[in-house]
Design a protein around this nucleic acid. Structure first.
Length: 663
RNA sequence: GCCCCCGUAGCUCAACUGGAUAGAGCAGCCGCCUUCUAAGCGGCAGGUUACAGGUUCGAUUCCUGUCGGGGGUACCA
């Protein structure tokens, strides 16, 4: 049961009785939300913060309002007598006998007493969305892992959820692969491992296309660099005027000009270096000479595919199954699942209709030959058809919205996509609204970039993006080392077989990787580090898995019959701060899940689990379980252990992370 | 140019959306294994929340400005 929400209900009732004048701008529902866990145990378990803002609205002294609220608040069945502190904080301490009865209820319930929501909604969660032709890389972890966790949490709380992987299986990258397949393929390699060969072909063609694009770009960059130099030279001739404001402006201009010169020179140098490196490689240079029009040719292959060219379509159909299987393999390893995998190709024959529909309704018009949706307050329009007649990803996204609304009638669609696409989604949602899809709550669940130690997007030493598979292997390998070391160190000698160690390493390694991502506030960029990820302490999956394994160890050693224990109405004793703290922590799980969904931030859940595991560690240290002074206390503590383990297991499962019995 | 995001302890990050003394982990220092897993526990130290104003009982959070960083911005996704 959710103590916090129950307290909110009680507060709501108390607030209604204290109704202000009807014209006063008081948001009762908002005030009733202001029940939060106390920061400091000395203030009790929960605090109510709404007396101060309410006092302002009522133009009365805050402590007086607090007192009146306390008088009206019916909580004596849940809490000890409320107290008022400071400017008007109302502090609440949950009665120990209530904690005990709630724990007993949780013990007997396979959902730990967490009820499904009263009003279930239909959600669609759009996450992962890799490009089929390109191998998944570090950038795909966040979307996959965050989306999967949101999906699991919504579902656990009783909502209807569709997890949809909107894969990129129809874009320009397929033109590149087809071109590569037609000109550069290694048949033996393709037969042996089609995905690896296709991936090689993609990288090769992409590299060659990049060469020519770079060549075209270079003069422009040089021009920009020259222009920057000219601006700088001009700025340097400006003499001080004596006017403070003017001089400050001039100094600013100068600094900016210096920066521009520096960055544009760097861009030129980097590009030159890249092109020179390719020129210097005889094999590459030969291909460059032989395929001068590769960029246009690759686009042509894409266009042919889209217009139903038999040969290209056949190739596409041949390529897709192994590509999809490769994705599946990664998802299996990550424990990420979907209900649907409806990629771009699924929508391709609906695009023309969508574009025409917008045009017919007067929501889109042609501009410079392209069909555009002009949006209120937006400088740049959203293009839904190119001047060559081809469609864009905005078109696909609109078609996807139409399809989803018609098929699932969702209350909300969540797009778990990185923050760089925020403008796109702003436009997309505005366009959807124009089209009349305004009953649905579209949300861009954006997230930051994964950075390397240098603060730049995470890359290998050679500058390539890091493949996801290698990342997983590395995490598991490092976990294996730690698992082995730890097992060897055991005073009673190693406990795990080679097979068990391997399984533990997989669970710990993958868990660490996912947790590192989920424990971060999703909106911020974060620095990727194996060392931090697999740290043996701190807010990591390992720490929680360890806490879980320690509980299980107690049950193993004690030969405890868990089912019998759960069925008994154990009189849980909460006589030490460690035990009481742990009890309160266990009972906060539902609140944590609720909080994690307010803004769809799984890090709220990880924070909770860390607190729970910390409180357990303290308890574990201070309260002997198997050697408790009395049989009653032993049972009581076993109960707390079991509830802790189940809560950790549940919480981690909603993050998509497993536990191990021994580590 | 315009738009969006960010700046918190030496480092990596939190902070329940305006609440009490801004919290963790790492790194540093001091303690704790003949007792259920020391991948642990207890403690110390570390801060002008980039800067300057403003709003109010109260600001890391809201507003304005400044500095610094990142991202986006008409036919890629």
């Amino acid at each position: 049961m959710n103590i916090r929400s129950r307290l909110r209900d009680r507060l709501q009732t108390a607030l209604e009785g204290l109704a202000p004048a009807p014209d006063a701008a008081v948001d009762l529902a908002g005030l009733a939300e202001m029940v939060v866990p106390s920061q400091d145990p000395k203030f009790g378990d929960y605090q109510i913060n709404c007396a101060m803002p309410l006092a302002k609205a009522l133009k009365r002294p805050p402590r007086e309002v607090a007192q009146e609220l306390v008088d009206r608040l019916q909580v004596d069945d849940l809490c000890e007598a409320p107290t008022i502190a400071g400017p008007g904080f109302i502090n609440l301490k949950v009665r120990d006998d209530r904690l005990v009865s709630l724990l007993q209820t949780a013990a007997k319930d396979d959902r730990l007493g967490i009820a499904p929501v009263a009003h279930r909604k239909q959600y669609i969660v759009d996450y992962s969305a890799p490009n089929v032709a390109k191998p998944m890389h570090v950038g795909h972890i966040r979307s996959s892992v965050i989306g999967d966790s949101i999906y699991r949490t919504l579902k656990f709380l009783g909502h209807n959820v569709v997890g949809d992987n909107h894969i990129g299986d129809w874009g320009t990258q397929f033109g590149m692969i087809i071109y590569g397949f037609k000109h550069f393929r290694d048949d033996a390699a393709y037969r042996a491992n089609p995905v690896a060969e296709l991936s090689r072909l993609y990288r090769l063609v992409n590299q060659l296309v990049g060469y020519f694009e770079g060549q075209a770009e270079l003069p422009k960059l040089r021009q920009k660099a020259d222009a920057a130099k000219a601006v700088l030279a001009a700025a340097q001739t400006i003499a001080p005027t004596g006017d403070k404001n003017v001089d400050k402006k001039n100094a600013q201009t100068l600094k900016k000009a210096q920066n521009d010169v520096e960055s544009s020179a760097k861009a030129v140098a980097e590009l030159q270096e890249k092109l020179a490196a390719m020129d210097a490689d005889p094999a590459v240079a030969k291909l460059i000479a032989a395929h001068p029009k590769i960029g246009a040719a690759a686009l042509e292959e894409t266009a042919k595919l889209h217009s139903g060219d038999e040969e290209n379509l056949k190739l596409w159909q041949e390529f897709m199954p192994p590509c999809l299987e490769a994705l599946e393999e990664t998802y299996r390893r990550l424990h990420v699942t979907f209900d649907e995998t409806l990629g771009e190709s699924f929508y391709h024959d609906r695009l023309a209709e969508v574009a025409e529909d917008f045009e017919r309704k007067g929501l889109a018009r042609e501009s410079d030959g392209a069909l555009c949706i002009f949006l209120p307050g937006q400088e740049t329009p959203m293009l839904i058809r190119k001047k060559d007649g081809a469609f864009l990803y905005a078109t696909t996204d609109l078609a996807t919205i139409k399809y989803r609304i018609e098929r699932w009638k969702p209350d909300a669609v969540l797009y778990v996509v990185d923050h760089r696409q925020s403008l796109h989604f702003e436009q997309l949602f505005a366009a959807a609204k124009l089209a009349g899809y305004d009953a649905c709550d579209f949300r861009h669940i954006s997230f930051g970039t994964v950075l390397g130690k240098d603060g730049r997007p995470y890359k290998t030493r050679s500058g390539d993006t890091v493949g996801l598979k290698g990342l997983l292997d590395e995490a598991v390998e490092r976990a294996a080392t730690i698992v082995a070391e730890n097992d060897e160190r055991n005073p009673e000698g190693p406990q795990l077989s080679a097979e068990e160690r391997k399984r533990v390493a997989e669970t710990v390694g993958i868990g660490a990787l996912k947790y590192a991502d989920l424990s971060q506030n999703r909106t911020s960029d974060y620095e990727f580090s194996y060392d931090k990820m697999l740290a043996m302490n701190g807010n990591t999956a390992t720490y929680m898995q360890y806490a879980y394994a320690r509980v299980r160890s107690i049950f193993r050693r004690g030969g405890v019959d868990i089912e019998a224990l759960r069925a008994k109405n154990i009189a849980i004793e909460l006589n030490t701060p460690a035990e009481r703290q742990l009890a309160v922590s266990i009972l906060r799980c539902e609140e944590a899940l609720e909080l994690a969904l307010v803004d769809f931030r799984p890090n709220q859940l990880t924070t909770y689990l860390f607190e729970l595991a910390s409180h357990y560690s303290t308890f574990f240290d201070q309260c002997p379980v198997l050697k408790a002074p009395t049989p009653e206390l032993r049972d009581s503590r076993l109960m707390l252990c079991d509830l802790t383990a189940r809560t950790i297991k549940l919480g981690l499962s909603l993050l998509g992370i497993d536990v191990v019995e021994q580590m």
